[in-house]
Design a protein around this nucleic acid. Structure first.
Lengths: 209, 209
DNA sequence: GCCTAGAAGCCACAAAATCGCATTAAGGTG
DNA sequence: CACCTTAATGCGATTTTGTGGCTTCTAGGC
């Protein structure tokens, strides 16, 4: 999780890391991210600046580490009884968290200080885990389930793309629309002749949103 | 295009900007992006460091500016005679350019030094323009065309998401698959019987590639 | 051909990052 | 459990980078 190899995960190294992370979290709240400096964090954490420079390289990599921890999902996706309901709920929550100002900041920070893509990959893995959990439950219920990859391409990717590259706001309806399209696509692929049946089934569902 | 207001687009300011941009491009090639420093760029460009700090704030914003210029498409999308062929070709080229090591670097740089999202928005606008051009041509031919937004969500977003958040490689087949799904979805929505007519039209034109 | 204001130059100063070396402590070994 | 090895931290000197005040220059308007 840490950008530099932590050969000694326990003991002092761990304490230093936790202390530094805590100092970052505190100071971001107190003085804002833009005013943060490495010496400032070092002082608050009770370590020397050299330690931070050596372990994290620069402030961005440190912030990236802190951000990826904050983006780790704390709870499993809710079980609402059906794939569709679970996905809707998860996507809405995901969008809310990611599109909020702090969420956007964390995403930026993760990408910013992540030369090798480890932390970004971790974020993606978090989303995939959550989706997998939803899909596994649905499969257990006997529902036909889409591929995780499909949901990442159709739901996660558009949300993240808009957050990163497009100025406008995002709302829950957009998340639901993405889920609708993804689930719909999966039903098509499932082998049903993609013609009238599917089209009418869909036009029945859409007004509900 | 410049992050700070350029009240005087012509004359010396313009020369300084061009000179600095050129210095960045040269030095990135010579010493690598990681070794770049503001003083180094300033020396090469024949300006004082203060000038760069004042106009761009820091190295990242400068790199972001340079990167967004490099990501500007140089040519209009090729006209291959059909929407499907044009989209396939465009998506493949887009993926190639963006997923290449330099492409990835530019994307990162754009996001990195872009506090207000202006440059990222510009990148997104470039892609949208190219897609619009393809769609406009197709519409003129009388083909049914999907929304630009749909293609951004279904083709551009997944590509960018994978580049930014996932480690693995990307190939042209993936781009084509995304286009296939997007065009297919559009045909569904269009209400047109999405069956033989569309399928045969497609299989006739494609052999040309 | 002035005038004006924004932009760049210059220089001194403040802050940061880097580096070598000494010291500490984790984790393994006998 | 004492010892040993070595990664990690602390410390301070040095280098490099970033900032601010002030002057000088020049593009664009009159």
């Amino acid at each position: 999780m840490s950008p530099r190899p932590m050969a000694r995960p326990g003991g002092r190294s761990a304490r230093v890391q936790e202390s530094v992370h805590a100092a970052v979290r505190e100071l971001v709240g107190e003085v804002g991210r833009d005013a943060l400096t490495v010496p400032m964090v070092a002082t608050r954490a009770g370590v020397t600046p050299s330690t931070i420079y050596r372990r994290w390289g620069d402030l961005q990599e440190l912030l990236s580490d802190v951000a990826v921890e904050r983006l780790r999902p704390e709870t499993d996706p809710a079980d609402l009884g059906s794939l569709r309901a679970d996905l809707d709920a998860w996507a809405e929550q995901f969008l809310d968290e990611m599109a909020s100002p702090p969420g956007r900041a964390y995403i930026r920070d993760v990408l910013l200080g992540d030369p090798d893509g480890t932390n970004a990959g971790q974020c993606s893995a978090y989303a995939a885990e959550q989706i997998d959990a939803v899909l596994a439950r649905a499969a257990q219920r006997g529902e036909p389930v889409p591929e995780t990859e499909l949901l990442i391409d159709r739901v996660v990717a558009p949300i993240m793309y808009r957050i990163l590259f497009r100025p406008g706001p995002l709302d829950a309806a957009y998340a639901r629309e993405l889920v609708t399209n993804a689930v719909y696509a999966q039903q098509m692929e499932a082998g049903a002749r993609p013609t009238q049946a599917a089209a009418s089934r869909r036009s029945k569902k859409k007004p509900g949103n």
